[in-house]
């Protein structure tokens, strides 16, 4: 290393010392944030007032609430999807006592809240079915005590 090279090193490092922190700091401050949009456009049925039974199953990212107009009559199944399902399609059916696909309830798609009208009954369970791949996604049996 001779004197000329030492000078060149000095110039490079002074430039780096000045320019890089400017870029590093300006790059991190004022990053345009992902905008939060508060209006939703997807229509959801109105929630029935009385919560009769609450079932959490956070493993699959699903919550099921049975609701009604009064605490004696179930008329709505509220499904809260917390994590996206990893399926090409997800149709919700009732689960029969012999563990098979029963009555059609409705379609699930993206994360969010779904409210389906159902008959007054203590559902044995539900089943989510992928119509495109033709296989069962989730089977869930409910505990009523």
């Amino acid at each position: 290393m001779n004197a000329g090279l030492r000078k060149r090193h000095l110039i490079f490092w002074i430039l780096i010392l000045i320019i890089l922190p400017i870029i590093m700091i300006r790059a991190k401050i004022n990053v345009p944030k992902q905008p939060i949009e508060n209006k939703t456009y997807l229509e959801v049925n109105k929630q029935k007032p009385v919560l009769i039974k609450e079932i959490n199953d956070m493993n699959d990212g699903l919550k099921f609430n049975f609701r009604g107009d009064n605490d004696k009559q179930i008329s709505q199944l509220e499904v809260i999807l917390v994590k996206p399902l990893k399926d090409a399609s997800s149709t919700l059916f009732e689960l029969n006592y012999n563990d098979e696909k029963g009555t059609y309830i409705g379609e699930l798609s993206q994360t969010g809240v779904y409210r389906f009208p159902i008959k007054n009954q203590r559902l044995y369970g539900v089943l989510i079915f992928d119509e495109i791949k033709n296989d069962v996604v989730i089977k869930k049996v409910f505990q009523w005590d």
Partner: peptide, 24 residues
């Protein structure tokens, strides 16, 4: 030597690349 001193330019470019890319 002039060519190999460009490593400092490469370092500056790479730090900028990361801060203006992944770190955003």
């Amino acid at each position: 030597k002039a060519l190999h001193m460009l490593v400092y330019v490469a370092y500056a470019l790479i730090v900028s690349h990361v801060f203006l890319g992944a770190f955003q």
